[in-house]
């Protein structure tokens, strides 16, 4: 009973926050609501028992996306970009109507689902042993459907190249983002010195734990990225130039490693085949590489394209 109350309250909160994020007059307020929204959704995932997803949502959905948006709002505001007026009521009504219809259809579809369908839970459980890992989600992510994950990591690479290619030509060869600085000894700088060791530890832990518990390269990588960004914001480190060979190696390393394992699998039984006896080590290696590249890539995504002189 209380469970139901909790669920209902959480759902209502989520919906309300979502509405606020969508309809909020102030853009900044909307973004803040969005961060809150991510947080609440992470609660929902937790409540549903999908801890891996909750981690991802907390780190990525609420965390990194929120930071990206906050930065963008600030950037636009500084650029003097004015907010457009809201749409006419008539158009709004039509749009709303159609959205209600769409949501209704989805609801109807949900209502029509077979309540006892178990999906692939059992199948995954049967094969978990051969996957080499104990966390079924990781097994799916990196073994059963490792191909998805391979493409996904490359998607991050694409986006990074895309973001970089939005630089002004004259800044090519420069460092991503703006040079950050903070008052030496100030709260920010101190924060930047304090938090990283903790974060680093948490990040590595989430990656390492991922094989058998909830967690993994994406969640861990995100934490690592956040840590690096924190340090950078504190003005303690600076991003290397986009042309730096080492930087590029870093962002490519994870996917390349993954691809190499995948191709090597051809000689061991098939594309992306991980022999059960080595699966765990292989997956951990891949996860480590991916975490590194993901961390670098995500951090660079938040930093944005080069905005400073080349050299």
């Amino acid at each position: 009973m209380t469970g139901a109350i909790f669920d209902i309250v959480l759902c209502l909160l989520i919906l309300a926050v979502a509405l606020a994020a969508i309809l909020g007059r102030d853009l900044f307020g909307s973004v803040v609501f969005f961060i809150v929204y991510g947080l609440l959704v992470a609660l929902a995932w937790t409540r549903l028992g999908a801890v891996d997803v909750a981690l991802a949502e907390a780190a990525i959905g609420a965390g990194l996306t929120g930071v990206l948006l906050v930065g963008a709002v600030a950037r636009l505001r500084r650029g003097g970009v004015v907010e457009p007026t809201p749409p006419r009521p008539l158009a709004r009504g039509a749009q709303m109507g159609i959205c209600v219809l769409a949501a209704g259809l989805v609801g109807a579809a949900i209502a029509g689902l077979d309540p006892d369908a178990a999906g692939l839970t059992a199948t995954v459980a049967q094969n978990l042993e051969a996957s080499g890992v104990g966390n079924p989600v990781t097994a799916v992510l990196l073994n059963f459907r490792g191909y998805d994950t391979l493409l996904e990591t490359v998607v991050l690479l694409v986006v990074l190249i895309g973001v970089w290619s939005l630089a002004e030509d004259r800044y090519w060869g420069g460092r991503p983002g703006l040079r950050q600085h903070a008052k030496p000894g100030g709260v920010l700088a101190t924060y930047g010195r304090f938090l990283p060791p903790l974060g680093l530890l948490a990040g590595v832990y989430v990656v390492w734990a991922g094989t058998d518990q909830p967690g993994g390269a994406f969640q861990g990588g995100t934490i690592l990225a956040a840590v690096w960004l924190l340090v950078a914001m504190a003005g303690l480190v600076d991003a290397p130039p986009v042309t730096a060979r080492r930087l590029r190696l870093t962002i490519v390393a994870g996917p390349a490693l993954f691809l190499a394992v995948a191709v090597a699998g051809i000689f061991m039984g098939g594309f992306l085949h991980l022999p059960p006896e080595h699966a765990k080590q292989l997956i951990q290696t891949i996860e480590a590489g991916l975490a590194l590249s993901i961390a670098a890539t995500l951090a660079l995504l938040v930093a944005g394209p080069p905005q400073r002189g080349a050299r």
């Binding site: 094969n127 490792g146 191909y147 098939g270």
Partner: peptide
């Protein structure tokens, strides 16, 4: 079947 995992488990 990628990785040797037949659908529906694999891709």
């Amino acid at each position: 079947a990628v990785g040797g995992w037949e659908p529906p488990l694999g891709i």
